[in-house]
């Protein structure tokens, strides 16, 4: 009986862990997009935080994927927008999705995105390119020692969706 319970517990650890990561920002996990109206914080004009944009393309994905800006100096509390550009250099349509991550991990809780393309499937036809916007606010409660926050996207091919697409065509 206990054995069954513990087997179940093993599986229970999965959502527990995810919730835990979301709350604590372990692994640089950030939640999904927030609603802009929820942001009501004051803008802190005295403080400047550098936000760094990084991209990684998994080697199975025949795309280019780059931030348009490498850095942005921002005031906490203010809403900013930047873009990533994706380009499909394969001779067939490919579906991909991006996994976001914020470093340092303890900054993840204070980096709020109001618009992002995280985890959503992106389809690009051969040779197509697309601008992918990110809107974000750095929470003024960001710990003082943090002067640089890295927003990183790792983009992966979605094998299943790409295969389905190929079958349809």
């Amino acid at each position: 009986m206990l054995a069954m319970a513990m087997f179940g517990f093993g599986y229970l650890l999965v959502p527990l862990y995810e919730k835990f990561c979301e709350i604590t920002g372990i692994g640089g996990r950030t939640g999904g997009a927030m609603v802009e109206a929820e942001l009501s914080s004051e803008i802190d004009h005295d403080r400047t935080v550098r936000v760094q944009f990084v991209s990684t393309v998994n080697s199975a994905l025949p795309w280019r994927f780059e931030p348009t800006e490498r850095f942005m100096d921002v005031h906490p509390g203010k809403l900013y927008e930047t873009k990533y550009i994706a380009y499909n250099r394969a001779d067939h349509a490919v579906v991909a999705q991006a996994v976001p991550s914020v470093s340092p991990g303890r900054a993840a809780l204070f980096f709020n995105k109001t618009e992002c393309f995280c985890f959503t499937e992106q389809l690009l036809s051969p040779g197509e390119s697309r601008d992918m916007p990110v809107r974000f606010v750095v929470d003024p409660n960001l710990p003082d020692r943090v002067d640089l926050v890295t927003l990183s996207y790792i983009i992966y091919k979605n094998d299943e969706a790409t295969a389905v697409l190929a079958a349809v065509n």
Partner: peptide, 13 residues
């Protein structure tokens, strides 16, 4: 582009 399901990854990028 590599070969799916094997250790061969794409070197294009």
């Amino acid at each position: 582009h590599g070969r799916e399901g094997t250790a061969m990854t794409g070197f294009g990028s």
